[in-house]
Design a protein around this nucleic acid. Structure first.
Lengths: 210, 210, 210, 210
DNA sequence: TATGAATGAGGCTTCATTCAT
DNA sequence: AATGAATGAAGCCTCATTCAT
């Protein structure tokens, strides 16, 4: 006979189990997206990678697109939170850029896939990317404006400053096989990118510490 | 009865005809790739756009990939030649950048499609992009080094200088719906990009003319 | 610790509970069958309508067909009983027809679904329909023969008499959206059908009262 | 070398071939619909019955529904034409009824399936049935009114007269396994139905010849 | 060479049924 | 007895490629 408590516990176990399966699916999908590209990833492959029956996928994500959106949102939220955390301490532009690279480093593969395919993906995918970039943009803008006040950053339109950095990073991500064959490009080239970029946007005055 | 000569002539006619059909197919394919994306373009749509039977396509390009490669190579060669032509006159960095944008402007749609999808396309696609970038790189490097000699361009590693520019341009191309909705982004934003970039890489000295 | 008595009580409670659940399922299923058609009704929808977990259904009806058969038999028995009750009082043909329509009126939706889909349903479905029609047939035959004796009904083979009535009623049921859009067709058209049918089978002599 | 004429001939051959395949599909589908019911017929079964690859079906009928509609329209047109032809000669009600049965006899199986499932079929299916019934209705109404003028048919609303006949015939079709096991019910019972129905609607005066 | 009908492997999705809790 | 997550067979449809004409 089930006591109320046991019902609750059992209910909890069930939801936990379901949530765990959902996580497994998300992880498998993200990994396959990173590996083979988003559009080229078959739902059957995701199921197999997750160790589930094909049909089980559709219990959790009735349409393939919903899975993609869930992966992206999951990823976007995580990345934004990470960016906030990482940027929280540092006040300088350098700290921001390094936080950005640190945040991306952990999800390099998937982020690169997203970047590359966003154009042909559902609205939600693009919105999620935009959200990430807005978050980043906010931190960079603040740091850059402070730098301009302080005289360490050359005065210039902030959006161009931002797009130059984003473009540079994305270019390296999109061509990561070229810039760091068989390795993580941000690991290998990140320092170089930060230095170069700071060199470009700084005044000669080396006052800044971040 | 066919004389030897008529065979030759007919053969020639045939080759001409075949070459013409091939061109038609390439043009149609490129246009569709630009419009809908490469992966999303169906062979049947290409045939229809070219005014040919579906099967005829496979007479000229037995595998879909061969068509794609042909389009890309054709495009790459054309663009490189154009970049050479456009860069020939101007010696300064500004001239190089403007030549780059001018060259891209004519093929913006397809180039953007190539950029965004290259990661999941056959080797040839990436090679072709590389070839284009090498060509450009050669011109930019020359101009940049001259500028550094002359003291108008700040001293810095040329490959980073180059990748910064490429990254900036590609970022705008990849997000052209965002930066110039319903319009050609290089037309609308090109000038701004050149000015900003030159501002970044220049010394304060405004000696240069290009 | 369970005493023997408590086991019995609990066992009884359980059976009661089980029977109650079974009733709930039957009611929900019948309602959905009537609403959307039998073949188009999903087992999951029945469970949801009954406020039960999907799996619980299969505890009571291991195969979907068993549920269907149970619904049909339940329905058939109920309808036959009702027809008997309704016919009990009236002795004339008119009373029979009106009792028939009255009996059907209460279950119009499901009866129409059964009619339209019986051909592709298990044997039991057809048998159940037959049973209903036999019941009706018995009453009508009795009334008709009495009418023929009395000279109010034209002499003719009883089975044809009966099938003409059944065919007429079923035709209106099968096309109830056409004959009474958004309403109950027997409510709207029943009177007309009875009058017309009686007109057809009667002699001119208007002696009868029912 | 293809002359213009040969092209035309070849073109003709091709269209003939395509039309022939289409016919094969329609025939196979109609036969399976009649045999197993419309909703229960799988596209793969139709393809197999037609001796074609599964995919070929979708070349001719991109959606399953389009195949169904084509079968129904094909059938409806044929039946209406047949009704017109058959009714053309005879002027009496008897001739009309017999023409109706004759027309149906050839397509009994499919017509019965259509009747039974029309309620859950796409709009087009119901429209097609309506069209057939309208055609029939027109002929019957004309004959019935003439009969009423002539005093051979009892005066009564024509739509009820018509629906009584339709209901009777449909009832026999829907239960053809019951009324004529393993045989064509209209063949076996048609005469009886006509006589009975005429008996019901006629005045006693046996003047009429049709 | 050109045509376009035919092919069939492969993808997504549904849903009755099972099973661990 | 009840739950609901998981299963997997089966259905529909797409599209690159082949082939007879």
């Amino acid at each position: 006979m089930l006591t109320e408590q046991s019902v609750i516990i059992q209910g909890t176990k069930r939801s936990q189990q379901k949530a765990a399966t959902r996580e497994t699916i998300l992880r498998s999908a993200r990994s396959l997206y990173a590996e083979r590209g988003i559009a080229a990833t078959r739902s059957a492959a995701v199921a197999q990678a997750a160790g589930l029956a094909h049909g089980t996928l559709f219990l959790h994500f009735p349409r393939q697109e919903e899975l993609l959106v869930a992966v992206i949102e999951d990823f976007g939220e995580g990345l934004c939170r990470r960016l906030h955390e990482l940027s929280a301490g540092g006040r300088g532009l350098r700290a921001c850029l390094e936080a950005h690279l640190a945040g991306l480093r952990e999800v390099e593969g998937f982020y690169a896939a997203l970047l590359t395919e966003a154009g042909h993906l559902p609205e939600a995918a693009r919105l999620s990317l935009l959200m990430v970039q807005s978050t980043l943009s906010w931190h960079i803008a603040a740091a850059a404006e402070a730098g301009m006040e302080a005289g360490t950053i050359r005065r210039q339109p902030v959006h161009l400053l931002f797009n130059t950095w984003i473009g540079l990073v994305h270019h390296y991500l999109a061509n990561r096989e070229l810039f760091a064959p068989g390795a993580l490009v941000l690991e290998r080239r990140g320092g170089e990118l930060v230095e170069h970029y700071l060199g470009l946007v700084s005044t000669g005055d080396r006052i800044e510490g971040g």
